[in-house]
Amino acid sequence: MANVVLVTGVSRYLGGLYARRLSHDPSIERILGVDVVPPRHSIGRAEFVRADIRNPMIGRIMSQAGVDTVVHMNVIATPKDMGGRVTQKEINVIGTMQLLAACQKSESVSRLVVKSSAAVYGSSPKDPAMFSEDMSPKSLPRTGFGKDSVEVEGYVRGFSRRRPDVEITMLRLANVVGPTIHTSITDYFSLPIVPIPLGFDARFQLVHEDDAIAAMMLATTGPAVGIVNVAGDGFVTVTQCTALARRPVFPVPLSSGSLLGAIVKRSGLADFSTDQLTLLAFGRGLDTTRMRTVLGFEPQYTSRSAFEDFARHLRPAVPGVDGVGDAVSDAAGGTAAAIARVFDRIQP
C-alpha cells in the first residue's frame, strides 16, 4: 500500500499530470515531487523538492521523508526539450542509476514503478506482428531514446536482483498522444508537410495521455505486476494519421531519412530521430493481454480515437482551409500503394 510517494520528473507534462491525479487519492498520505526546475503547472498537493536525481542527495530525501513508493516518470523521450541528446542520456541513464542506488540503500522503499517505453522493442522488418513482454527484439535500438530505455530496464532488473523485497512494475507505454502533450510523434504529425518513408505505410499503436496516467495510477496503487505493455486497441497507419491530422505528405527514401531528420531537428519544429524513422517505416505491435489480465487495465481510447483527439486540437496545415483534411484523406488511401509501385519500377 503506497503511503509516501516520491515522483520524479514532476516539472514535465506527464509527471505533473500524474502528480495531480495522484493528489485525488485520499489513501496517499504524502507526495513528494522531484525535479531540477520548478514546475510551471499545478502538481496538486504534491510537495515540490528541487533536486537532481543524478545527485546522491536524492537518497537523503527518501530517508528523511520515509518514502515507501518511488515512481520514476523522468525517462525523457525528447532531447530538444532538455538541451540536446547528451543531457537527455545523462538524465535517463545516469539519473536512473543514481535513483536506483538510493532506492537500494533505503530501508523504507518497498515499491518501484517505472514509466518505460515500447521503444525497447525497436522496429525492424524481421519483428513479430505483436511483441509480448517476454519477447526480445530482433535488433536492439542502438541510438537515442530506445537505447536509453533498454539500459534503464537493464538497471531496474539488476536492482530487482539486489533488492528482491521491493515490488516492481514497469509499464512499456506505446507512443503517447493527446490534445495537450508534446512528444516526438505529436511534433512530427504537426509539421506543415509530413515526410514519410518512400514505399512504406507502417501500422503502429498509440496510447492516450489520460490512459497512460490511469495505467500509472493503477501500477502505483494496485498489486505489483512486473513488466506490462500498455497501448490502445487497434492500429493506425502513417497515411491514416496524416489524413486525420489534415497534413499533406512528402515521400522520402528511407536512406535519406537521417539527413532529413537532421534538417527538421535543426529547424526546431520536431525531434526526428533514426528510431522514429524506422518506426514509421516498419511499425510495431504490442500484445496487451497482460495489461488486461494482470494489470487489470482497460484503455478508454483506441489507438485511432487517441490520435483523433490529438488531431481535433491541431491547427490546419493551411490556416482557414477546412477542406485540406478531406483532400488529404481522399488521397491517403492510395498513396502508399502508388509510391510502392513507382519504387519497384525504379529498382535495378
Rank of each mutant, 00 (worst) to 15 (best):
V4S: 04
V5P: 07
V7D: 07
V7S: 08
V7M: 11
Y13W: 11
A19P: 04
R20W: 02
L22W: 00
S23K: 04
H24M: 07
D25M: 02
P26I: 13
I28V: 14
E29N: 09
E29R: 04
R30Y: 05
L32R: 00
G33R: 01
V36R: 10
V37A: 07
P39D: 02
I43D: 00
E47Y: 00
V49S: 02
G59D: 14
S63G: 02
G66K: 02
V67N: 05
V70T: 08
K80C: 01
D81M: 05
M82D: 11
R85Q: 15
Q98G: 02
Q98S: 10
L99R: 00
L99G: 07
Q104L: 13
K105M: 14
L112N: 06
S117T: 08
V120E: 02
Y121I: 12
S123R: 01
S123N: 10
S124F: 01
K126W: 09
D127L: 09
M130H: 03
S132R: 05
P137D: 12
G144I: 11
F159E: 13
G178A: 11
G178N: 07
I185G: 04
P192Q: 12
L198S: 09
G199A: 13
D201W: 06
D210E: 15
D211T: 11
M216G: 12
M216P: 13
G222S: 06
V225L: 00
I227Y: 09
N229R: 04
A231F: 09
G234Y: 15
F235K: 01
T237D: 15
T237N: 13
T239L: 12
C241V: 15
A245K: 00
P251G: 08
P251H: 09
P253Y: 06
S255A: 14
G257N: 08
D271H: 13
F272V: 14
T274R: 04
T278M: 09
L279G: 04
G283Q: 10
M291G: 01
M291C: 06
R292P: 13
L295H: 01
E298Q: 07
E298V: 15
S303G: 08
D309I: 08
F310P: 12
P319R: 00
P319T: 07
D322F: 12
G333S: 11
G333I: 15
F343A: 14
